[in-house]
Design a protein around this nucleic acid. Structure first.
Length: 199
DNA sequence: CGTCCGATGAACT
DNA sequence: GTTCATCGGACGT
């Protein structure tokens, strides 16, 4: 389990790298645990970052969870359909977040396939931020839940196997062309060569 | 393989 | 009314 202290770090870009290779667990039912390995992330560093919902410390009912102490989930509805999952980081009133964009399925993969309505298991199952949340039954009802409790519905576990810095590639974030000079920041991170990352 | 486009809701002008 | 941290289906190459 990643401890509460892990999330208090002010360096959200560094934390976005650190989350690669970590395990995310979702309790689907008392008998079915879904889990996978994080293979793609993006850092959002408000208040400066124009790409963040919390740019310029904007506070709405939706963004409120981003202002809490790190270690909780920020989940919002994107384009009215997709539930996107972020890890809140940093201290109270410092609205940093890390979007999880892709996950490599590990436990109960066939249940994930059913939840996605897919006929077979391919990287398309979980290689996008709206795809893997559906595959792991994550939705708005999890917004604000802590990620560091052993009994929690969603938990983050530390890296099992080692991952060298050379295995991480960075590039500009996607879908944020409106963000002016912030759109080119290389704050998207992927595990090099992993077939489960996005395109 | 690629481009186009509708879905569907929160937040904004 | 428009935009938006997206996706899958339709159709052309």
């Amino acid at each position: 389990m990643l401890p509460f202290e892990f999330y208090q770090n002010e360096d959200v870009v560094g934390l976005a790298r650190s989350l690669l290779g970590c395990r995310i667990v979702s309790e689907f039912s008392p008998s079915i645990t879904l889990s996978g390995i994080i293979v793609e992330t993006e850092a959002y560093r408000a208040p400066e970052d124009r790409a963040s919902h919390a740019f310029n410390n904007r506070r709405t009912p939706r963004t409120e969870t981003m202002y809490r102490a790190g270690g909780v989930a920020y989940i919002y509805l994107c384009y009215g359909i997709h539930h996107l999952f972020n890890v809140v980081t940093g201290p109270v009133d410092r609205p940093h977040a890390i979007l999880i964009r892709a996950v490599q399925p590990i436990e109960n993969i066939d249940t994930m396939r059913q939840l996605r309505g897919a006929s077979s298991v391919t990287p398309r199952l979980t290689n996008g931020p709206g795809k893997w949340t559906r595959a792991m039954a994550i939705s708005l009802r999890h917004n604000g839940l802590p990620l560091y409790h052993a009994e929690g519905d969603i938990r983050l576990l530390k890296r099992m196997s080692s991952l060298s810095e050379d295995d991480i590639v960075s590039s500009p974030r996607v879908g944020i062309d409106y963000a002016k000079e912030w759109k080119d920041k290389p704050w998207r991170f992927r595990i090099k060569g992993n077939p489960w990352v996005g395109k």
